[in-house]
């Protein structure tokens, strides 16, 4: 199904946010996630089911002022 990851469309078979992170190779990275604009804590990623057209944001530490 089509999932938007960080603004880019992906074709993913993953059923959950946790599975999507694994497919996209973020498994061991320090990242935080949001699904359709809502924060999803790491411990809830297994329960976060994905549906066609969902928007995932995956962020990491970056330089800031």
């Amino acid at each position: 199904m089509k999932i938007i990851v960080n603004g880019v469309e992906h074709e993913l078979a993953a059923a959950t946010l946790a599975a999507a992170l694994k497919t996209l190779e973020y498994e061991n990275a320090t990242v935080a996630t949001a699904l359709n604009g809502h924060f999803v804590p790491a411990r809830k990623r297994e329960e976060a089911k994905l549906a066609e057209g969902d928007r995932i944001e995956i962020v990491a530490p970056r330089q800031g002022g």
């Binding site: 190779e25 990275a29 995956i58 800031g64």
Partner: peptide
């Protein structure tokens, strides 16, 4: 520090 989108390959963050 800030948070920005992370690329699965580049891993800048």
């Amino acid at each position: 520090v800030s948070l920005r989108r992370e690329s699965g390959r580049l891993r800048e963050g």
